[in-house]
């Protein structure tokens, strides 16, 4: 029993103990709970942190590897570019070197060629010398030509003078002006006069030529029949140059008539004025001649020698236009009556 009692007391103790303990536990429950939570939170935090750091480490590894990869790739690119640039620079430098050699060569050879320039300048001075010489020659030639022309002109003038002075030629009986007996030898004009044959004065020709073309030529009528003289014809044939009709008829009015005209007048004077020389049949003859001439003139519309047609016209004008002469032609029958 003791034991029971013991047991009972023990039970009671136990109960008390149990109560105490329970109340204690109840008292501490809050705290314990908090502590447990703290411990749990710490532990969980530790766990999460560990995980995070683990993740971090992994990320870093990934990043590290990636960055390294890209950087290496970029670097490789850069190296490549730098190498390329270096190469290009080198090539360009070499190209410039080639170009400069080539350009230097080309320019020296073809553009600023010293030898070509030298030879060009030499050639130029040669050419200049040549041109100068040629021009000098040309000038001399021209001068000589002019001189010759002058001499020819002078000579013709002298010959003309000699023609004009032909009457001063000395004869066997009487020495001329240029052949003075007191001179040792005759004057050169005398020699010239001896050479020159007497010719009709030249003025006639120009007058006759003038009446070919000049429209109003009243003077041509006043001295008609200029071509009737054999002297003139021979003169025109013998003249050295072909005589062209002058463009403008210039009638000079001088104090004296030209010697040719005077001479012509003298030649024709008796024919015009002397009645005695006219025959009885003069009128008929004249009419016949006129008719003949008219027919000739009609035919002369076909081209004839130039010298003939004016003579025909002048002759007809001689018969028709000059009233005095016409009257002269008509007078003989009147006298006969």
């Amino acid at each position: 029993m003791a034991e029971l009692l013991k047991l009972g007391s023990e039970l009671e103790d136990f109960q008390k103990e149990h109560f105490n303990r329970n109340s204690l536990a109840e008292e501490n429950r809050q705290r314990d709970h908090q502590a447990a939570t703290q411990i749990q939170s710490w532990f969980r935090a530790c766990k999460v942190r560990a995980y995070l750091s683990h993740l971090h480490k992994k990320a870093i590894i990934i990043q590290k590897i990636w960055r390294g990869f890209t950087a290496r790739a970029r670097f490789r690119q850069m190296v490549k570019a730098a190498y390329f640039i270096m190469k290009m620079n080198f090539y360009e430098e070499m190209a410039v070197r080639i170009q400069q050699r080539w350009r230097g060569y080309f320019v020296r050879k073809y553009i600023h060629n010293f030898y070509a320039r030298k030879s060009y300048l030499e050639g130029l001075s040669m050419k200049n010398k040549l041109v100068r010489r040629q021009l000098d020659e040309l000038e001399e030639l021209q001068q000589r030509e002019r001189y010759c022309l002058e001499i020819v002109k002078e000579q013709t003038a002298k010959v003309y003078q000699a023609h004009r002075l032909h009457h001063l030629l000395s004869t066997k009986q009487c020495p001329g002006v240029f052949n003075s007996p007191f001179r040792p030898d005759p004057h050169e004009m005398e020699l010239l006069l001896r050479q020159v044959k007497y010719q009709a004065p030249t003025k006639l020709a120009s007058r006759e030529g003038a009446c070919l073309l000049s429209p109003p030529a009243p003077t041509a009528m006043s001295f008609p029949g200029t071509l009737g003289s054999p002297w003139i014809k021979s003169r025109t044939c013998r003249s050295p140059r072909p005589i062209l009709p002058p463009i403008a008829s210039k009638r000079q009015q001088g104090l004296f008539r030209e010697p040719g005209e005077v001479w012509e007048q003298r030649l024709h004077f008796p024919e015009l004025s002397s009645h005695l020389q006219t025959s009885y049949t003069h009128l008929e003859e004249a009419q016949n001649e006129l008719r003949h001439l008219e027919s000739v003139r009609l035919h002369s519309s076909t081209p004839r020698s130039r010298q003939c047609s004016p003579s025909a016209t002048t002759l007809t004008s001689f018969f028709f236009c000059n009233p005095k002469q016409a009257r002269l032609c008509n007078t003989p029958p009147g006298l006969n009556k």
Partner: peptide, 12 residues
């Protein structure tokens, strides 16, 4: 002009 010698002629 120079090549045909005109220059020398003008200078003369």
């Amino acid at each position: 002009i120079v090549n045909c010698g005109g220059m020398a002629a003008v200078i003369d």
